[in-house]
Design a protein around this nucleic acid. Structure first.
Lengths: 201, 201
DNA sequence: GTCTATAACGTGATAGAC
DNA sequence: GTCTATCACGTTATAGAC
């Protein structure tokens, strides 16, 4: 078995555990039991939990970068498709195994993270909000989205809402995530009724 | 010393620890050391951590109820003031001791909570979103707020955004919380420019 | 109402064999 | 690369004295 196979498996299981239970909610033993090895074997690949945690976030950042590259190739300049691609990240976690977006989990226990993990968490958050800012600005310029204020502020709001949506969905029903997504899109729509609309689209 | 004095002190410190470090991030020893007593004394008041946790959330719910009653007396039917009162809850936590809103912390580790805490967490979330729904519907009827779609959906979005805002602020700067609040209010404002506005209000 | 003492367990981590 | 064995520590929790 190649080194990277086990190392990758460890990262995969650790990521699932993190997104399910939080950073303080899983241990090396949890991971090793999933893989049918002993916890000492996990320490061989990642000497400390901080090493493991930092590697996990770095991998999340790489995965995000790849996803962005993929989307930009496939949906060049199509702001609505790009936004859907952004929203697909937390949605796919929720639908696959009821996991919540890693960024949210990490931010939730930010104060108890080792500093190298704090740094990577800040970086991941910045990466995601920066890209969302670009999408929103693009959509506004192309008259696909309507909103007032700086695109940066709107991106901050939307990303905060998606994070919160993951959490709320986890406590009740994944349908609540979709409800919030629908509202985000309604708020971004160009043609807004001035009359009151209290029924669903 | 009356029973309730120590019991209240325990709940106060436990709440701060929870909002700072998450449910799995503090122990009975943390609490007892804050109070200058031994951890066994904490067990006298709350036999298990689940008992303590459940009592904490029940108290959050009572505090929220009181706050709502206070606001409704002071700002009867003034939707904008009531919304400010709602937003003041997470804001005051952030500004006082860099704490995050208890609901968000609890939702973030929902899967590892004892079931009695899960039930209370769901209740607290429902309480808050229900009241926000009322405020938004009232504001729309009084032509103070503009938004499309059901008030319930908009309330879900705003509460998710405020939760996320607390988290993001905790990783960077409390100013980000205010940025998100400004954007929420821009999006609710009646008179929206159709022209692009990229500068701050 | 708080204490000392301690049990029982899980966790992060290391040493050294295979 | 994984194992057994073990350590030091923190945690939840209990028994029983004061």
């Amino acid at each position: 078995m190649k080194d990277n196979d086990t190392k990758d498996k460890i990262l995969n299981h650790a990521a699932s555990l993190l997104q399910d239970r939080g950073y303080n909610g899983f241990s090396y033993t949890h991971i090793s039991e999933c893989l049918g090895i002993k916890n000492a074997a996990v320490h061989y690949h990642f000497p400390t939990k901080s090493d493991l945690g930092t590697a996990m976030i770095q991998r999340f950042r790489e995965q995000f970068k790849s996803w962005v590259a993929h989307l930009e190739t496939k949906y060049n300049q199509q702001a609505d498709k790009l936004l859907d691609g952004f929203i697909a990240i937390p949605r796919s976690y929720l639908n696959k195994e009821n996991l919540i977006c890693p960024l949210g989990v990490l931010e939730a226990s930010f104060n108890v993270l080792p500093s190298s993990m704090q740094k990577e968490t800040q970086g991941l958050g910045q990466d995601m909000r920066d890209w969302l800012t670009q999408i929103l600005e693009l959509g506004r310029q192309h008259h696909m989205f309507h909103f007032v204020g700086p695109a940066e502020d709107k991106a901050l709001l939307v990303s905060a809402a998606l994070q919160g949506a993951s959490f709320i969905a986890g406590t009740k029903s994944n349908e609540l995530f979709e409800t919030i997504v629908r509202q985000i899109k309604r708020d971004l729509a160009i043609h807004q009724d001035t009359s009151k609309r209290t029924t669903k689209d």
